[in-house]
Amino acid sequence: MNFIQKGLLAIMLISSSVAFGQITEDPEERRGDGKDPLKTKTPEGDPLPFSQRLRFGGGISNVSIGNPFSIGVSPVIAYQASERAILGVGVNYVYYRAKYYYQGGATEVYHANQYGGRVFGMYEIIPNIVKNLYLHGEFENTNVGYNVNQSTTQNLRRWVSAGLVGLTYSQPISRRFGVNLTALYNLSYNADPVFSSFVYGSSPWVIRVSFF
Rank of each mutant, 00 (worst) to 15 (best):
T153I: 06
V160E: 01
T107W: 03
I125H: 05
F195A: 08
L181T: 11
A183Q: 07
E25Q: 13
T24W: 01
E138Y: 03
Y134E: 10
T107M: 06
G57I: 09
A10G: 15
D26L: 02
V109K: 12
P27R: 01
N132C: 10
W159V: 04
R118Y: 04
R208T: 14
T142G: 00
W205E: 02
A162V: 01
V76E: 14
Q52A: 10
Y200E: 00
Q103W: 12
T24R: 14
I71N: 03
S203W: 01
V199A: 06
N190V: 00
S51A: 11
L156V: 01
G34Q: 12
G105E: 03
S170P: 02
E138C: 04
F212R: 06
A112N: 12
V18I: 15
L181V: 15
N180T: 07
V199K: 00
E83F: 12
F69H: 02
S196N: 09
Q171V: 14
S202R: 07
I77R: 04
T142K: 04
L167A: 15
S151W: 14
G34L: 14
L48A: 06
A106H: 11
N190D: 09
Q150Y: 13
A183C: 09
L48E: 05
S188M: 06
T182V: 08
T153A: 14
T24S: 12
Q103K: 13
L135S: 08
E108I: 08
S174P: 04
N67Y: 01
Y95T: 02
G45S: 04
G58W: 08
R97H: 04
S82C: 11
I4N: 07
V18P: 03
L187D: 03
P49M: 10
L181A: 15
E83L: 12
N155A: 12
F50D: 05
Q52V: 02
